[in-house]
Nucleic acid binder design. Structure first.
Lengths: 159, 159
DNA sequence: TTTATATAGTTGTTTAAACAACTATATGCC
DNA sequence: GGCATATAGTTGTTTAAACAACTATATAAA
C-alpha cells in the first residue's frame, strides 16, 4: 500500500500530540479562571460518570483509556475532593461502584460549558468537514493500535 | 460561524488525545522490544538534536513544546544516560548548549526506523489525503491556542 | 471440595508535565 | 557605573502515566 508511506519527520506531531496537549492546557486554564479546582484528568472521569453514574473502576478504565492503577489514583483524588464515593458492590465484592456526590453533579453544567467553549476556541476556522475527517483519522489510528480490535473485544466494548 | 458549532460530547477525544497516546505507547513498546532503553519524551529531544546538534535548552523548549523545567529534567536524564552533554556557551554564560554523544548518534538510524514503522502501523488504511487534513486540523488547533500566534512571536519562531 | 485461573482493584517505583518561585547572567537606560 | 528588566536555566511540589508486583474475590475444572 504505497499510499500509506510518508516522509520521515513530517508526522512527528502525531506522536507528540501537541494539539491535544494544547487543548488540555487551555481547558485547565479556563477551569482555573472560573475557579473550578479540578484537573483535566479528574474532569474526564467525572465526564463519564455524568453520562452514567455508578460505573465500576474497570468500566472507567475502558471509558477513559486508562489502566487500572491510573483510575485507582484518580478515584482516590476525586474521593479526597469529595466529588465521588466508592461503594462496594453487593453482587461482586471485588467491584467498587463509583458514584457522584452532590458537589460533582453541580459541576457538570459549568464545566461542560467551559469544555465546549474551549473546543470552540480550539476549532475556530476549522470546517465541520475537516473536523469529521480528523476524527475519523484519530479513530482509525486508535483502532489500528488497540488490541480490543478483535471481534470479541469489540462486541464487549459496544458502548 | 455556525459551521464551528458542534454537538457536545462528540469531540471529547480531541481533549483526551487517545490516538496520540496510543501511538506513543506503541512506539515505547517497539523501543522496548528492540532493547532501546529510552522514553518517548527523551527520544523527542534527541529527534531535534539529530536534525541540528548543539541547541540551547530554550531552543529545545520551543522545538518540543515543553516548558523549561521539563527540558531541564529531560536533559538531566539524558545526561545520566550519557546520551547528551551540557556545554556552557562562551558567548552567553546563561546558556547551555546541548550536544549529542556518540551513543546518541548511533541511536538515530535504529530509532527513526522504529518510529516510521510505528507510524505505518498507526496509519494503516488511512489515505494520504486524510492524513494531510488531519495534520492541518491539528496545526490549526495548535495555532488557535498558542499565544505565539502574534506576528512578532511568529517571525521569531520561524524555523 | 480442592485447585487453577481469571478478574477487580491496590501499592511501589520511575518518569514526566505543569506551575510557582528561585538564581544567575545579560541588556537597556539613567 | 548602577539600577531595572529580560532571559536562561534550576528547584520544589503536586498530579498523573506506565509498568510490575501484589491482594482479594469469583469462576471453572478436576
Amino acid at each position: 500500500m504505497p499510499n500509506n508511506q510518508f516522509k520521515r519527520g513530517e508526522l512527528y506531531s502525531f506522536i507528540t500530540g501537541k494539539a491535544s496537549t494544547a487543548i488540555a492546557r487551555r481547558l485547565q486554564k479556563n477551569f482555573k479562571q472560573a475557579n473550578v479546582d479540578i484537573t483535566i484528568e479528574q474532569w474526564s472521569v467525572l465526564y463519564h460518570l455524568w453520562k452514567q453514574d455508578g460505573l465500576s473502576q474497570q468500566q472507567l478504565c475502558d471509558a477513559t483509556f486508562r489502566d487500572k492503577p491510573s483510575i485507582t489514583r484518580l478515584v482516590d483524588n476525586l474521593e479526597k475532593l469529595q466529588l465521588v464515593k466508592r461503594v462496594a458492590s453487593k453482587d461482586d465484592r471485588r467491584i467498587n461502584m463509583i458514584y457522584l456526590t452532590k458537589d460533582a453533579v453541580q459541576l457538570q453544567e459549568q464545566t461542560m460549558e467551559l469544555a465546549n467553549q474551549t473546543l470552540n476556541e480550539a476549532l475556530a476556522g476549522v470546517t465541520n468537514g475537516q473536523i469529521e475527517i480528523a476524527k475519523e483519522v484519530l479513530q482509525m489510528v486508535y483502532d489500528n493500535l488497540t488490541p480490543s480490535n478483535s471481534p470479541e473485544a469489540v462486541s464487549k466494548a459496544g458502548g
